[in-house]
Amino acid sequence: MDQEFIAYIHKVVKEIFSTMVFLEPVQGKPVNRTKDSNNIPPGKKDISGIIGLGGTITASIIVHFEKESALKVTSSMLGTPYAQIDGDVKDAVGEISNMIAGGVKVELAKTGIDLDQSLPIVVSGSDFDTNCLNGDNSVLVPFTIEGSSLFVEFSFKR
């Protein structure tokens, strides 16, 4: 598992949440994502933001939100309560994913890895899966936000 990538994700998520979300994300133990399992417990992934990255390496960042965490993040960012996944919540998930990818990209640029990033794609539902580029080079970094889940998945091919 590439500890440098995990450190970048921890740093970037902490910065985003302290400056624009105003919630405290609690770090969990990162795991390698396998090709056969996304390592996310059932019911903990209701909406995900997907960003493709291309350049020196090929990579993707997927940010998986439990419904409650997406609602809490959107409510806190905008200062108004959200009870259901609507257009604003989907937009906020896309923007958080965009900022996480952008932050990781800046950290990678400092090491000589230059990447361009795609616009965010947001998917939601009760039963969906996402396949990473390469299960052998994929890490899943978990966080909890006031008891609800958020996972940042970083996959790459060198």
Binding site: M77, L78, G87, D91, A92, E95, N98, L119
Partner: peptide, 12 residues
């Protein structure tokens, strides 16, 4: 900005 949420944040 293509994000309506980000436009709201900037406007606020």
């Amino acid at each position: 900005d293509d994000s309506a949420v980000m436009r709201k944040i900037i406007k606020k």
